[in-house]
Structures are given as structure tokens and as C-alpha cells.
Design a protein around this nucleic acid. Structure first.
Length: 359
DNA sequence: AAGTTTGGCAACCGCCTATCT
DNA sequence: CAGATAGGCGGTTGCCAAACT
């Protein structure tokens, strides 16, 4: 014998649409006293002319007593952005078509996946677009036509200008794509800090375009077996970029870089030459508290197909295929509570109005 | 002041998967 | 083991209020 359908044959009679205060009270009263072991039978037992599914949604998204309502804090917002960049369907960590709002919600007590999803799609998405960041991929937008006004161009240039501070930290852009490296480096050195001077802004637009080109996945050189690694580094770098730029802009701050040890050069992730790399590690240094360099993680390629991650707690994770590789990275990110992706104390950026600032 | 557009969000829809019979 | 459902999830819709013309 199989279970009867949820509310199939009664669907015509079941009420839909907004819940009334009376219905809410009935649902809360019933669940408070009896719990909710079976959503299908619950509406009838609670005296509600609703589908069980509708009751469950109303409870989990609105009536649950532990729900936190009201405006999202800056910290919550930053966390959502970080988590979305790691857990979204466009992340290299996942191949699912889904974005996993529910997993993001597990990191924000009192917030529901539905609420976070709505907030991201209405507020955060807008802010990222204004900054020239693609809200889906979290990479700088490469569609120049979408950066439509000077304010946006300046914003993009400001961000990309900060990127150069990272490359300066890493002793230049490293090993490959030297044509781009030279022109971009010169541009940034001469541009210095952002001003609202229009002439300077125009130069920054050119700078922005150069860097956008650099970070356009379609122009990045790649060849197996390091393609996945390169893409992963690029993605990871861009994720971090959004949150680390303000910190990087201050002396003694943190930095995140990719070390291509085959030639001793430190390289920006998108520029790691697949041909030249035999061992590439992602190194996070933290000098905020005078603690000196601290290696947070290391990604090694022992051979062309097998990867190993060494975690800060001494454990390792290996993956024999690319999918497993991403899962291992996800594990690393989610386990490491100190790491900035999950709101650790290393980075201090937050949203103010429509831009990121130092705190 | 009235009509229109836009933004925010609760709720629904349909798909997926774990679980049950 | 196969078939079917309940519950869970993400994407989308549509209502309502605020903002704009």
C-alpha cells in the first residue's frame, strides 16, 4: 500500500493565497501543542482549509518562533555574499543547478532560505551590479556595455585599482601574459589612489578595461590538466577579492595570493601559467596582529589528476577527480572557521550604502 | 490628486530525492 | 526491488505599498 497524495484531489477546495491572522493563530496553536510530525494530516487536525505544504511553508518561513525578523545586519549581508560566492550554482565548487540557499541559511541563525534568497535577489544583487561585480559569478563584469555611467566606471576602476595593490604585494604579476602585465602595471602605478578627477577617471576606465580583459575567462590561457586548478584559483580569488580589497589597501593588512613555486614568482590566480606550474599553492598571510606569515592552506598537484589539500588542523583531503577536488575545497572553506569566507576576524570589510568600506 | 511604475516579499509551483509501503 | 509520496528546495509569480510622473 502506498501513501495517498498530499492534497491532490482536494486541491480545488483548498485555500491559497495570503494567510489570515486567524489561520496563523490556528497553525501556531496546533504546532505548539502537538508538533508537526505529519504535514499532510496537520491542516485537517488544526482546523485549517490549507494544503499541508502550504502550512509547512507558512510555519518555516514566517511563524516559527526562532525566526529573526527585520533588517539584515552588515555582518549578515557580508556573510551572505561570501557564502553565495562559494555555494552558488555558478561556483566551481558545485555543478548543481541549484544555488543552495538552504545551506547559506544554516549559517545565519533565525533567517530562512526564502528570506535570504529574496534579500539577495533584491538588495545584494543590486549593490554588486553597481560595483561592477556579476552577482551570479562574483567576478568583475566583463560585459563593458553594462557599465553604463561614469559613477559605475569609477567604482569599477576603484576596485580594480585596489587589485593592483595585491599584485604589487605579490611582486608583480608573475610568469605569463607579460603583455598585459606590463601595461596594466604601468597604468596602476601611474594612477595611484582614486580621485573624482574626470581625467584621471578616464585613465582608470582604461585600466578597468585592461583588468577586466585579464579576468575574462574566455581570454585566460588554459590547458589541461591545470585547467580546473586555474579556474578554481580564479574563482576563489574573485570571491575573496570582494571582501579583502579594503583590508589589502592598508599597510600591514592581510593578503591572499597564489604562489607558483615552479619559478619562485607569486602570481595572480588568473595568470598562473598551466604550462609552467608544477606545484601551485594558495597562501593566505595575516599580518594584522603582527603575527607574521601564516600559511592557511596549500593546494598541491602531485600529478596531473590527483590533488591533495592540507588543512590548518593537520588533516588532509584528497580527490582523484575534479568534482571531488571541489568538494574538498568546500570542506576546507566550511571547516576553517577563522577563514574570511565564513566571517572570521581576519578581514574587516562591510557594506555602507552601496560600497565596501574598512571598519 | 490620480495614474503608472517600481520594489519588496510572501506564497506558490514544480522538480528532486529520501523514505515508505 | 519498484513504485509512489512527503518533504525539501530553488525559481518564479503576483500582490501590495511606496515612489514617481
Amino acid at each position: 500500500m502506498v501513501r495517498p497524495p498530499c492534497c491532490g484531489e482536494d486541491e480545488e477546495k483548498v485555500k491559497k493565497g495570503p494567510w489570515t491572522a486567524e489561520e496563523d493563530a490556528k497553525l501556531v496553536d496546533y504546532i505548539t501543542n502537538k508538533g508537526h510530525t505529519n504535514w499532510k494530516s496537520l491542516p485537517k487536525l488544526a482546523g485549517l482549509n490549507r494544503c499541508g505544504k502550504s502550512c509547512r511553508l507558512r510555519w518555516t518561513n514566517y511563524l516559527r518562533p526562532d525566526i529573526k525578523r527585520g533588517k539584515f545586519s552588515d555582518e549578515e549581508e557580508r556573510l551572505i555574499i561570501n557564502l553565495h560566492s562559494v555555494l552558488s550554482n555558478n561556483s566551481f565548487f558545485f555543478f548543481s543547478r541549484h544555488c543552495r540557499w538552504s545551506r547559506i541559511a544554516t549559517h545565519l541563525p533565525g533567517r530562512t532560505d526564502n528570506e535570504i534568497k529574496n534579500y539577495y535577489n533584491t538588495h545584494i544583487r543590486k549593490k554588486l551590479l553597481q560595483m561592477g561585480i556579476d552577482p551570479q559569478t562574483h567576478k568583475p563584469r566583463t560585459d563593458h556595455s553594462q557599465i553604463i555611467n561614469l559613477t559605475q566606471l569609477i567604482g569599477a576602476a576603484q576596485q580594480l585599482n585596489s587589485m593592483m595593490m595585491l599584485s604589487n604585494n605579490s611582486n608583480g604579476l608573475g610568469n605569463s601574459n607579460n603583455n598585459y602585465n606590463t601595461s596594466v602595471t604601468n597604468g596602476i602605478i601611474s594612477n595611484g589612489l582614486l580621485t573624482t578627477n574626470l581625467h584621471e577617471a578616464a585613465a582608470k576606465v582604461q585600466l578597468a578595461q585592461n583588468l577586466l580583459h585579464l579576468f575574462n575567462p574566455t581570454t585566460a590561457t588554459s590547458a589541461s590538466p591545470f585547467l580546473a586548478q586555474q579556474q578554481l584559483s580564479q574563482q576563489f580569488f574573485c570571491n575573496q577579492l570582494i571582501n579583502t580589497l579594503p583590508a589589502l589597501a592598508t599597510a600591514g593588512g592581510s593578503s591572499l595570493m597564489v604562489n607558483n613555486s615552479s619559478n619562485g614568482a607569486l602570481a595572480m590566480p588568473g595568470l598562473v601559467s598551466p604550462e609552467a606550474s608544477s606545484s601551485t599553492s594558495l597562501v593566505h598571510t595575516n599580518n594584522v596582529n603582527g603575527g607574521g606569515e601564516m600559511e592557511r592552506m596549500k593546494m598541491e598537484s602531485g600529478n596531473n589528476n590527483n590533488y591533495q589539500q592540507n588543512f590548518s588542523d593537520g588533516t588532509t583531503a584528497t580527490a582523484a577527480d575534479v568534482g571531488g577536488e571541489y568538494e574538498a575545497w568546500e570542506k576546507m572553506l566550511l571547516m576553517d572557521d577563522d577563514f574570511a569566507v565564513l566571517g572570521g576576524s581576519t578581514f574587516f570589510s562591510s557594506w555602507k550604502d552601496d560600497h565596501l568600506v574598512l571598519e
